[in-house]
Design a protein around this nucleic acid. Structure first.
Lengths: 183, 183
DNA sequence: TGATACATGTAAGGGGTTACATGATTTC
DNA sequence: GAAATCATGTAACCCCTTACATGTATCA
């Protein structure tokens, strides 16, 4: 899938692995991420498959860059992927829920502390979502009116994060109350 | 982490890899899952680490079973894990959101169709959560009153899934309306 | 008669993380 | 003077998925 994230971004224009990492961290971080090392490996693989091409760009006072462009074959593959519906929900793994599931033997204080830590963490992510991330999307919409449909979808994915984090915070508040009374 | 899932279940009593798989599918599937092949490999590794011990059990008219028991070392490791707070949110990957993010070029009909498919899938998971999963937990609470704290936490993890899936369905409904009007 | 449940395992390959290596420039 | 930014890559390792192998009993 990282493959399609890279093709998706390169479909907007040529850029380097380093650029791709930064874009991802700014836009899709809440639902898709990758390490630089893995991005470089995947770019090599995509080039070997003729999905992208690259050229070295010499810079003064900065390290050289390798800039990648999507090919017709890459565009076709990307298009096929976005057009094909996902017919199953991807099973996810939530380490905190797993830990909570097996936490019956820990102290009430530790349990409540761990729930409050989760609440704070989700609160911070939610705040960043509603400020920084919303601003990035709003800015693109203003500066590039031809990306109107794109911005609509980017905003939908941002909203998804907002709604889900709000739900998680409500659940944590509810759970803290229940543990307080009944554990 | 699968390591701790296995230790966590074995802490309730000795059982086989096959049993562990079935328990996981019934209880933690929404936030933790594993293939049988991986469970068998991990059990071997845990035994090599002296976290668990095993004995072969011969059966008539069924294949032999290998039943695992948690050791004192395993219990100590499990306890350390549940007592240590997670100080960061595990970054998750959501293939559907990634696809949606890059879907600006597909047709409105395809887009709406994909959103409705997601809605149906989440609706089904939510229904199973509120019926089957809730029943499994309620049953344990009745039959094993000494697992009261455990059942409280199991119910909390189930509630988490319920609240989040409800939020996702609301988000999908909202998004379907926006796409209908503005895409 | 064919599928499903029971039951355990190995092997190949894919994707990901962590650590390491290099090196100039800019910022605190 | 130290840390962060820019920039690319390799190697080791870990976890996971998919496929394969084996064999009985039960159910539709």
């Amino acid at each position: 899938m990282l493959k399609y994230a890279l093709l998706g971004f390169l479909n907007y224009g040529p850029m380097s692995g380093y650029d791709l990492k930064q874009l991802m961290d700014q836009s899709t971080a809440n639902f898709w991420h990758a390490k630089l090392s893995q991005i470089y490996v995947t770019l090599k693989a995509l080039e070997a498959e003729d999905m992208i091409t690259s050229s070295a760009v010499t810079q003064e006072s900065r390290p050289d860059r390798r800039v990648y462009s999507i090919t017709a074959k890459g565009k076709a593959d990307l298009s096929k992927w976005v057009n094909t519906p996902d017919l199953e929900i991807a099973q996810s793994k939530e380490p905190f829920l797993l830990k909570l599931f097996f936490s019956a033997q820990i102290s009430k204080e530790n349990l409540l502390s761990q729930l409050r830590i989760q609440r704070d963490l989700h609160q911070k992510i939610l705040e960043r979502n509603k400020t920084e991330l919303a601003a990035v999307i709003a800015q693109t919409t203003e500066q590039a009116p031809h990306l109107k449909k794109d911005a609509l979808l980017w905003e939908a994915t941002r909203r998804s994060g907002e709604i889900i984090d709000e739900a998680i915070i409500r659940w944590l508040d509810e759970t803290i109350e229940i543990i307080n009374k009944e554990f």
